[in-house]
């Protein structure tokens, strides 16, 4: 009985110490970041310069970036900046995973925030679920970016739906042996998704790394990279994450 009480006491102490260490780290980080520079809510000229300087150094070209968007921690302008930075970096697909379900409701706000930030920046932004509103580009070689917002329904429920459709005979899926191979089932499944590449990189903020049910079929080789511990979204951590992604070495089982 006594030893159990001692163990519980020590357990509380261990967690208290970890909490204090994390708090100290957060305070230090905030103080350090704030002291160095104040990050703007909008994409600044220096953001553009710094990306233009560093993006060409990255050999591993990123095709599809997914940002785990938690509306409790990220503002619409945080998300808009990620789009513009990615446009300048030359990432062709940027998606947001709507963890709380509030981003889809605020899609229009995000649209306007992106438009506001884009002013004067060459490139074309396309929303996958909207007709081309701003298909204009400045110059032939301008970057193009396609934006998607995904939520839980695009994950497991969509796979379930596909199995249902095959079972009902609405989707054809043939198998050569008794069980489907990945290729056979995969061909039927990807018909239910729009044609976009599998995510290469998932950016998340905060201490918890979790997929939250983001499209299970598509994330098999996706790298999970933490943008910041305190949920902040700034140009330094964005470029840092891109550099970290560049160092990742995919071996494809070999």
């Amino acid at each position: 009985m006594l030893s159990r009480l001692i163990r519980q006491f020590l357990f509380i102490i261990v967690h208290l110490i970890v909490n204090i260490l994390v708090a100290v780290q957060n305070v230090y980080h905030r103080f350090w970041v704030k002291k160095r520079k104040v990050f703007s809510d909008e994409v600044t000229k220096s953001d553009i310069m710094i990306i233009m300087e560093h993006a060409p150094k990255m050999k591993n070209r990123l095709k599809h970036l997914v940002f785990l968007a938690d509306t409790n921690h990220h503002s619409i302008s945080d998300l808009a900046r990620v789009v513009i930075w990615s446009l300048i970096s030359g990432v062709p697909y940027v998606s947001f995973y709507d963890i709380t379900g509030e981003l889809k409701q605020n899609e229009e706000k995000l649209f306007w925030a992106i438009e506001k930030n884009k002013k004067g920046i060459p490139g074309c932004i396309k929303w996958s679920n909207k007709p081309d509103l701003n298909g204009y580009t400045y110059g032939m070689n301008a970057n193009k970016i396609i934006i998607n917002i995904f939520n839980y329904m695009n994950g497991r429920p969509q796979i379930v739906n596909c199995i249902k459709q095959i079972a009902k005979g609405e989707v054809l899926c043939k198998k050569k042996s008794t069980e489907y191979t990945t290729q056979e089932f995969g061909e039927a499944l990807i018909q239910t998704y729009s044609l976009i590449p599998d995510p290469d990189l998932i950016l998340y903020t905060g201490p918890l790394c979790c997929s939250y049910g983001l499209m299970p079929w598509q994330i098999r080789l996706t790298e999970f990279i933490q943008l910041s511990l305190d949920h902040s979204v700034n140009i330094d951590s964005y470029l840092g994450a891109l550099f970290k992604y560049n160092k990742c070495d995919q071996r494809f089982g070999k």
């Binding site: 198998k175 069980e179 489907y180 191979t181 995969g186 079929w217 098999r220």
Partner: peptide, 9 residues
């Protein structure tokens, strides 16, 4: 992916 495909079968 293989596991999901077999479960679907």
């Amino acid at each position: 992916r293989d596991e999901i495909s077999r479960a679907a079968s």
